[in-house]
Simulated assay, not measured.
Amino acid sequence: MILFFRLVILALIIYLFYLAVKFILDPKRKLESAHEQKKYFFYDQPDNVRKNFLVTYEGVLFEGEKYLGTTDRAFEVVSIFIFPHNPDLLQGLSYEDFMYIENEVKLRYPNAVIDWKSPIKELLEKNRNNKV
């Protein structure tokens, strides 16, 4: 009977260790930590088109909606709409910050056309027109 309890305790310790490692390596936890520390983090499941990706940058959380379409060779993500979860936190972000986020998304989805939702869309259009 004592041997049985020792095996149960050992199994419980192994299970708790497994849960701790799983918690530490969880990308959602890393996203939340980066968001709190106002760092950049890109959370995505590239093999699942139905799941939106999340980007945290300078304490602002952005969500990107992926849309599947056809390219010359295959079905891929061809359109992405990005919007902030809380537009009030956009204060202090510049055109270069949004271009950085856009470039990071382009690295992962090179065939996608990226469209920002308002009010970022107006800022980007105004700056792009001034540079031309």
Rank of each mutant, 00 (worst) to 15 (best):
L3W: 04
L3Q: 04
F4Y: 09
F5W: 13
R6D: 06
L7Y: 01
I9K: 11
L10N: 04
L10G: 05
L12F: 08
L12V: 10
I13V: 15
I13H: 03
I13N: 13
I14R: 02
I14D: 06
L16C: 10
L16D: 08
L19S: 09
L19K: 06
A20Q: 13
V21E: 10
V21T: 12
F23P: 01
F23T: 07
F23S: 08
F23N: 07
F23C: 06
I24A: 10
D26S: 14
R29H: 05
R29K: 06
L31Y: 09
Q37D: 08
Q37W: 07
Q37E: 11
K38D: 03
K39P: 12
F41A: 02
F41L: 08
F42M: 10
Y43F: 14
Q45S: 12
P46Y: 07
P46F: 10
V49D: 12
N52K: 12
F53I: 09
Y57H: 08
E58K: 14
G59T: 08
L61C: 11
L61V: 15
E65K: 04
K66Y: 07
T70D: 13
T70H: 14
D72A: 10
R73V: 13
A74H: 10
A74C: 12
F75Y: 12
F75G: 12
E76D: 07
V77N: 07
V77M: 07
I80V: 12
I80E: 00
I82A: 00
N86K: 15
N86S: 15
D88C: 05
L89N: 01
L89D: 15
L90N: 04
Q91N: 08
G92H: 05
L93Q: 02
Y95N: 01
Y95W: 03
E96L: 13
I101V: 15
E102A: 13
E102Y: 06
N103E: 15
E104N: 09
